[in-house]
């Protein structure tokens, strides 16, 4: 296989990953690294660098669309970005010192969690009491709904902050957006409406990934020849997918994609333990 064929195949795979990632709401980033390492035999460090770059691209273009609709809570996002960037920096530094085998195993575990979320129904966790800290940070807000503006309160900011640090660390260590964990921090712990949580999470993913991408770039983990088809492919797939988002039923697709992720999780853990990542 020469570089041209290699690039086209990876580009095609990335289009598919971006498309399914958007349609299922699970993000395409989680399957890029397993695809590059398990299918194309790419070293996991180059794979993480390329994946991270594609995560910034999709998050930024999706956030530009969401912000128009008025769902995202910019204050919540900005405040929690302190936590995710701190986490991302530590995750990226950790990636420089721990063995690729261990990274592969942790990646597998993150995939298992992602598969688990794909089989769960989104639920609303609401609480109408006031929270003094969220009032001081002026985070309570509203979002447009079919019945007009829906007002909501934000709760348990320290708890959300801590989980966001973990989400950031995983993002920096594995080159993924870790959107699933960010949404959990906001909707379950901070009791923010699901729609606001998902769009605000998308908003934060770009900043989080940029924090670790700087370190990866400076350490030579981002290869232009490899990142090129991944970034362009995921971007094309994701923007195509976002046009179909509201029209198609995605439940069966979610289940199917969840199964694929489960298989990849087992593969990553198995290969990591066996020592196929060096």
């Amino acid at each position: 296989m020469n570089t041209l064929e290699f690039t086209l195949l990876i580009g095609l795979g990335s289009v598919l990953a971006g498309l399914v990632g958007v349609l299922t709401g699970l993000g395409g980033g989680v399957v890029i690294v397993p695809m590059l390492t398990l299918v194309f035999g790419v070293d996991i460090r180059y794979a993480i660098g390329a994946s991270l770059v594609s995560v910034i691209a999709t998050s930024s273009s999706a956030a530009a669309t969401y912000i128009k609709e008025g769902y995202s809570n910019l204050r919540v996002g900005m405040f929690l970005e302190i936590a995710t960037t701190l986490g991302a920096l530590s995750g990226a530094f950790l990636a420089l010192i721990i063995s690729p085998r261990l990274i592969a195993v942790v990646f597998g575990l993150a995939l298992l969690h992602s598969a688990y979320t794909s089989w769960q129904e989104p639920k609303e966790f609401r609480d109408n009491k006031h929270d003094p800290l969220s009032r001081r940070l002026r985070m309570d807000s509203s979002y447009p709904d079919s019945g007009g503006l829906q007002y909501y309160h934000v709760h348990n900011i320290p708890g959300g902050f801590l989980l966001m640090m973990v989400a950031g660390a995983l993002s920096g260590l594995l080159g993924i957006g870790s959107g699933a964990l960010k949404v959990i921090a906001m909707d379950r712990i901070m009791k923010i409406p699901f729609k606001v949580s998902t769009t605000t999470s998308n908003f934060m993913i770009g900043v989080t990934a940029a924090a670790s991408a700087g370190i990866y770039l400076n350490r030579g983990y981002i290869d232009p020849g490899l990142a090129m088809p991944v970034m362009l492919g995921v971007l094309i797939g994701a923007s195509t997918g976002s046009h179909f988002l509201m029209k198609s039923k995605t439940k069966s697709l979610r289940t199917l994609f969840g199964t694929v992720i489960l298989v990849l999780a087992v593969e990553m853990i198995f290969n990591g333990i066996k020592g196929n990542f060096r």
């Binding site: 296989m1 020469n2 570089t3 041209l4 290699f6 690039t7 194309f40 035999g41 790419v42 070293d43 460090r45 180059y46 691209a57 350490r219 030579g220 983990y221 981002i222 290869d223 232009p224 020849g225 490899l226 990142a227 090129m228 088809p229 970034m231 362009l232 971007l235």
Partner: peptide
């Protein structure tokens, strides 16, 4: 970003497309 990557990518493949990819072992940029 997309346009720069696309332009650079087209040039890169024109020049190096026929060579073999080497991402199996990490060397760093």
């Amino acid at each position: 970003a997309g346009l720069l990557v696309l332009a650079g990518g087209a040039m890169y493949l024109t020049v190096h497309g026929a060579a073999g990819p080497a991402y199996g072992a990490f060397k760093g940029e």
